[in-house]
Nucleic acid binder design. Sequence first.
DNA 1: ATAAAAATCATCCTAAAGTATGAGCAAAAA
DNA 2: TTTTTGCTCATACTTTAGGATGATTTTTAT
Lengths: 158, 158
Amino acid sequence: MTSARRFFSKNKSIIAYSISLALLMFLLKWLELRFVIFDHALEVYIGAIAVIFTVLGIWLALKLTRPKVTTIVVEKQVYINPGEFVLNETAVNELGLSKRELEVLNLMAEGCSNQEIASRLFVSLSTVKTHSSNLFFKLDVKRRTQAIEKAKKICLIP
Amino acid sequence: MTSARRFFSKNKSIIAYSISLALLMFLLKWLELRFVIFDHALEVYIGAIAVIFTVLGIWLALKLTRPKVTTIVVEKQVYINPGEFVLNETAVNELGLSKRELEVLNLMAEGCSNQEIASRLFVSLSTVKTHSSNLFFKLDVKRRTQAIEKAKKICLIP
DNA sequence: ATAAAAATCATCCTAAAGTATGAGCAAAAA
DNA sequence: TTTTTGCTCATACTTTAGGATGATTTTTAT
């Protein structure tokens, strides 16, 4: 049942074409009988058929073929306003940075000295030095200024 | 001359259609003369014409339809906090920063050490130290990291 | 031409930054 | 349970940064 319905709906155009072709045949037969009296009517008749079926073919083609589509991709640049900072967690995981190291990194970027960082995190200067040393190793840099530069580039800090 | 040629090239398909139609007419006329002896040959003949011109119409339609152009706008995200960096010259004048000091500041922000800055500016380490010292005094900071932080805030560096 | 500003360099000294190594401890993962 | 990981701290040492001061040489503006 459904398959039959599906068949009709899928071949709608073809069925319509067949029916209209049949009707035209009848019409032409009728015309043939009426105008057979004229001389050279056949040539005109055939010309008419040619034109009609050409139009029909064109109509059919336009109906059946899916429209030719050429796609033009236009890149529109969307400028992201630096309003909200989102931490690049992918980078954090790839580099294996710990929570504490990120804290140290942030305070570094704020211009804190190691001693200030130690005071603000309630740890010793040694601890901060260890963290910063590990940080530089993981970020593959030699100085805190380079660490800040790189961290900003890859969105580890705002 | 050129306009005529242009006309031909532009209406190539239509001209081809006309010619093939004329040829078909001749062919059909010839067939008519040959097979007129058969009974009911006319129906077959007309059917053949119908089919041929339908095909012709389809071919014509496929040839003549111009592709539909769809424009797809792809939003490309461009992360640009620099957008375009414009130096805050007002601040530069207010703080009394010299050209050289700004150069040093920029290299500092790139993560260069004083020695690296000296090499890149073709001056001695002492000179860079003097510049940076003056810089810190003018910016009212104590460390290069603070200088970078402040300079970015007031648009002295990108 | 002359004074002011900018750029250059040096030396001495202190403070901070950074390296290397070892070790204790607690929480989480195996 | 054992191992791993992260955080902690310490000591000793080297390097870099930064301060203070003074001096010479270009530029630049008046």
